[in-house]
Design a protein around this nucleic acid. Structure first.
Lengths: 353, 353
DNA sequence: TTGTACGCGTTATCAA
DNA sequence: TTGATAACGCGTACAA
């Protein structure tokens, strides 16, 4: 049976060739005895190919272990199916969850994730230079960018969605949690429960999220005619919260009724500082509240009273918003603001309703 | 000055063209009045180009906002400069740190990170299918792969380095922490300090790391003639640790002198369970120890006695190992095992030395 | 040192 | 439905 023999010979020859490099669509075409474009079509969903052709091609493809080369595809289609995620501080306990959900969600929509972690926000320029060459279809940024950097995106017409960063100066796509409203609510609750002196442990001065929380909280305290309010420098970390408690003690000589912290990590640090460095009881002697609703906030050592961000909904929204703009470059900028959810917890004395 | 006019005209024409698409090396070449290959060379470090040529090309490039296209480059060089990182459970507090360091380290070496997060280890196949088309230069896996999956890497000759996964069946590249030695040491210390009854809270049964820790701990306890040892099912999470404490109480009616947990998160959950669900004092009444040395282990509510993994050194080693194999495909498989460091902490009564 | 010409592996276009 | 041919944007022998 010369026909069969010839076929296996051909397979062997091509397999041998494939050993040096991966099999290409040409190799498959040759083995299947069809044109290369036919092979290409067989791997394109929704292309018009006869069943007979498809079977033949797929058989040959399997035999050679052929897989389409996404790099070559991207070159011609001008779609890389790559999305860059820029995250400022991965070590902040809040972000791993965000990252995991974003990745999951993007993956479901057929996009791959190029990860860029900023060790400091000032290194954004460097990271952008690394992103441009890869022809990403879009970018999700959980980091602050300068106006110049924003206009680089405009210039390149690369869709960009911010996560929890808000810009008043630009019309930009963003998904965020209503930091201000969360802050107001929690202040309301604290005042209503009879707290009369307050401290706010602030975040890094260049953090938009931190500043929003801070301003909203301080403003509402003023509205509710609370005069006894101290602002303490802190940060987003456990250590910052712990340290701020000492600063507070040095400054005031005592502790306020309630300590409002810029985020959960900071609040947890503050609680530990109060309890272990100063022997204070939380919440009996001092109420402590945070923001975010990270995992450890729920641990029974803390049971933190906090404003939880609806991470799942937010990441979904961010991905959807980005995809829409990748499909249709003409979509206008959009802001989606989600409300936070107060988690009563047990680290603050709140009024019973 | 017709010369100048002509030049700006050309710039305008090319800029106009560039508005539709990004400028290519051809556009730059045309504007600079040189060949495309000259442009290419100017962007290749260490190529032989005269200073005059370089200046001319760079000026034109800047004018058109030209940036080399990494996709096209990858196609021709057969190097994508892409490394895939596969991580099983990003929400495990231990991994964000690993991921951050790996990304940092790879970035320093000019590689970009494609991130794949597994929601469950069984989804590895799916993820691998997503990886192959992208022609990644290498893969770092902090997840378990089957033998079949391993041989897929062989077949494609894609360098693979495992992080904290150990295979005895295959000669494979891996960087890990000596889980067994850490377990033995901590058992030694506990026994030496006079503990006489023990419980081990286990991890998921399919976790290699968890099993190693468990086997080594139980074996050493036996060697030291400790008979009073209970094994409790648990897991890697806070909730698992907390739940295991209740299981333990149901099973024993009391608590052992020392609880050895499969990792820090579990240990923290166990401490909280003991303290808040059963009113036990840690370490006075029950000693609790963990593994990993994650951030929260150091928080003063816990001060966990644990075995810290030298994450920085391990990630460095993993990246170096991978890069070596990317540069030289002939490098033989290698295992690098790092010793853990005992952090005395304050959650266990250890002997003073 | 520079330019010419080709190839990387795919999709898109158009005619058959 | 199929096949021939031309892109996509770049790196690199080779010759000049």
């Amino acid at each position: 049976m010369p026909e069969v023999k010839k076929n296996t010979d051909k397979t062997d020859k091509l397999l041998e060739k494939a050993e040096r490099h991966k099999a290409t669509s040409y190799d498959v075409a040759e083995l299947a005895g069809v044109s290369q474009s036919a092979v290409s079509r067989c791997f394109k969903p929704g292309a018009s190919v006869s069943q007979k052709m498809r079977d033949r091609v797929m058989k040959a493809a399997k035999e050679l272990g052929y897989e389409p080369n996404a790099i070559a595809r991207s070159l011609i289609t001008r779609r890389s199916n790559l999305v860059a995620i820029i995250i400022s501080n991965l070590t902040n306990l809040y972000y791993p969850e965000v990252l995991a959900q974003l990745t999951q969600c993007l993956s479901d929509k057929g996009m791959r994730v190029l990860l860029f972690a900023l060790e400091s926000e000032s290194k954004a320029d460097e990271v952008l230079q690394q992103i441009w060459p890869y022809q990403v279809d879009g970018v999700i940024a959980a980091a602050k960018l300068t106006d110049d950097q924003l206009s680089e995106f405009d210039k390149r017409a690369i869709p960009l969605v911010f996560y929890n960063r808000f810009y008043t100066s630009h019309a930009i796509n963003t998904v965020c949690c209503d930091q201000a409203e969360g802050a107001r609510q929690i202040v309301n609750d604290l005042v209503k429960a009879g707290h009369q002196s307050f401290a706010f442990i602030a975040g890094p001065s260049d953090s938009v999220v931190g500043n929003e929380r801070q301003e909203a909280a301080l403003k509402r305290l003023k509205q509710l005619e609370q005069e006894n309010v101290t602002l303490i420098n802190g940060g987003f970390s456990y250590e910052a919260g712990e340290g701020a408690v000492t600063t507070m003690h040095d400054k005031l000589g005592e502790f306020p009724d309630a300590v409002i912290c810029v985020n959960d990590m900071c609040a947890i640090g503050a609680i530990d500082g109060l309890r272990h460095d100063f022997g204070k009881k939380v919440p009996e002697e001092v109420s402590v509240v945070g923001f975010d609703g990270v995992g450890p906030a729920g641990w029974s050592s803390y049971n933190l009273t906090t404003v939880r961000q609806p991470v799942g909904r937010m990441t979904d929204a961010a991905v959807t918003m980005l995809m829409e703009r990748i499909e249709d470059a003409g979509m206008p900028p959009e802001k989606r603001v989600f409300a936070g959810v107060i988690i009563p917890g047990n680290s603050a004395r709140l009024a019973e309703d």
